[in-house]
Design a protein around this nucleic acid. Sequence first.
DNA 1: CTTGCTGCAAAGCTTTTGCATTCCT
DNA 2: AGGAATGCAAAAGCTTTGCAGCAAG
Lengths: 136, 136
Amino acid sequence: MHSSLLDRLQARGYRLTAQRRVIAQVLEGENVHLTADEVLEKAQALLPEISRATVYSTLQRFSEMGEVRELSLDGRSKRYDPNVVPAHHHLVCDGCGAVFDVAHGIEAPALPTAERRGMMITSAEVVYRGTCAGCT
Amino acid sequence: MHSSLLDRLQARGYRLTAQRRVIAQVLEGENVHLTADEVLEKAQALLPEISRATVYSTLQRFSEMGEVRELSLDGRSKRYDPNVVPAHHHLVCDGCGAVFDVAHGIEAPALPTAERRGMMITSAEVVYRGTCAGCT
DNA sequence: CTTGCTGCAAAGCTTTTGCATTCCT
DNA sequence: AGGAATGCAAAAGCTTTGCAGCAAG
């Protein structure tokens, strides 16, 4: 089976702390993508003394490691997507900002070389938008 | 020819002020997409007494009118895209956050009904990412 | 032991808001 | 004249940072 996020943390020489264990657990237990504040809230339910700064820095660390994807889809908060692989697109509710995964298999169209402005393209994500049932 | 943004403002009953004229001018004069702060800076060069609050509320107004598109592509600032029509995608530099338009003609793949979670899809934008020359 | 991690609180940045004043129409 | 738009300054989110103490390896 796959090695867990925690195993990979350790393999890279990062320390394994109760806080990181809890944050990893919170992320993996969710099928929607949480904001940092929501991660804090759920983590505090499991480990009351965890701090906001730790949640933010840990999410940043996980993101730099490529273990979590940071999404900026509305002007409010970033959201954290624990499903880095396989690559997939997102469906966003313009009302509440909720983000849903779109099953993989859909491929974004390639960007013609003439349009690349000399950049090497590292990702191509499609963002679908609409309004969810709860937001009428 | 097309009616200008200012004509459309007036047609909808909005007042035509020096501030709005300057903001429209700043937006239309750019081929990259500016943040609110950059709009303020350029607007102040033309009309020194314009305030930050006015820039923000005007951009919000233009966006509600559908005259400008609000983009949230990184966790920093929103950017404002004056080219609402034709629809087009964007190329983002992960280093500096700069946003370039991708020529229209590229179509995002449709989202299968099974994946829509009951939502009516109102838009599908592709975001290409890479690192621009200046960000090495 | 050593160095990295945590918690706290303060600061930073972007954006919004309340209210008196100004000025389009 | 009348109501909308502006400017100012304060406040409100979200996120980052500095630093002393704690703990994983």
